[in-house]
Design a binder for these strands. Structure first.
Lengths: 209, 209
DNA sequence: GTTTTTGAACTGACTGGTCAGTGCAAAAAC
DNA sequence: GTTTTTGCACTGACCAGTCAGTTCAAAAAC
């Protein structure tokens, strides 16, 4: 029986184990933080022995770094797809941003633990995995920046717009609103959250109507 | 000389020691996280003996909780003051929001470590200090929600506006933009950041001019 | 003289990482 | 077709080190 090659990685027994370890680690680290999560816990949750963790990953930190890369890879792919699909359907820049907001919300709804963990670690300094985190952050923000920049070039967005800062602000808006939604108002629908953010993006906050 | 710490002024000798401990703890925990920070480190950084930590605080967790309460107290006071001052000067709701954004940025510029730590812990679950965190979060968000709600009542904001979600989104926008600013573009001025966020708030993103 | 701080020793529980050994399915040898 | 070998993936007991929290006599500050 050979490789039913799923995207990017082979599907050996080993790969399945790694996947289980990712899933176990992401939940535990999101809840407790990296340091408070023990390798024993991760192994137990994944249903494997502790030694297996070290057979598959060089160290606890390396497991975490690869988890980060894996997760952000999924996010950027999703954002990029949303932007491209909008462009192909003849939508403008604002439509693309709106589609990316929705894609971001869908991602966070699906992988809340990863999002939580990412936010918690992103601005720490002096950590072993800081360089990985920087790279991975830039990948994600770059997608948003790209759409903004193109919008400015095409005259659809104000040329006074500060691309990097606005990108960060938009990402933050979605991130925090979504985490708050998940944590404190889980009964709300994704559409609710999306329309509230959409309204904010399009400046339809002021005015009585 | 008072260095920038999250604590306000104290009077007794004991209070001074507590402040030194807060200051040491906030930096270390922001950088490394709660679990990775040892009590020995905190004591050393504060320049006191380990025994002093336990003379002043019942435990490491209690020290952390009191730190949280104090820091968020300062933030909410600052936000509230900004909103009230704007109201007194005859500004509208949007002006009040703008003033609060600025107040938030000033706070984050002054206490970056506290902000970082707060964001890192806010959405965690199953932590000992979760209830403290919830209370403290609500205090802060309530200020923003209050201004939004009043704006809707006075017809200055759309009555379709989702108050809690918009409040969370605004807070997130400021938080993430500011942390990104501090971490990745520290050369930018506060005014730069403020005007970019202000533009976003007022929907002056679209359009060429 | 009372409050606060010191500083070093100690405990008991926990943690990241190691390693000799097991299980097993496919390949090789017969 | 049966037996033997190979080597990958996994196991779990074990180790050396670490940390929160305690204790306390003595000093310092007030």
């Amino acid at each position: 029986m050979e490789s039913s090659t799923v995207t990017g990685g082979g599907s050996s027994r080993r790969e399945a184990t790694r996947q289980k370890l990712y899933e176990a680690a992401v939940t535990l680290i999101a809840e407790q933080g990296f340091s408070a999560t023990t390798v024993d816990e991760i192994a137990e949750r994944a249903g494997v022995a502790k030694g297996t963790v070290y057979y598959n990953f060089a160290s606890k930190s390396v497991l975490f770094e690869e988890l980060l890369r894996h997760g952000v890879g999924l996010l950027t792919a999703s954002l990029r797809e949303a932007a491209e699909k909008t462009a192909k359907d003849g939508g403008g820049t604002v439509d693309a941003l709106d589609a990316m907001i929705r894609a971001g919300l869908v991602f966070i709804e699906r992988y809340p633990a990863f999002t939580q963990l990412y936010v918690a670690e992103l601005w720490r300094t002096n950590r072993a995995w800081q360089s990985t985190l920087m790279v991975v952050r830039q990948e994600a923000v770059a997608v948003v920046e790209g759409v903004l920049r193109e919008g400015v070039e095409r005259g659809e967005l104000s040329n006074e717009l500060d691309v990097p800062l606005t990108a960060a602000a938009l990402v933050g808006m979605v991130l925090v609103a979504a985490l708050d939604w998940q944590s404190f108002q889980p009964e709300r629908s994704l559409d609710d959250v999306h329309s509230a953010l959409s309204r904010l993006l399009q400046g339809r906050v002021s005015g009585t109507r």
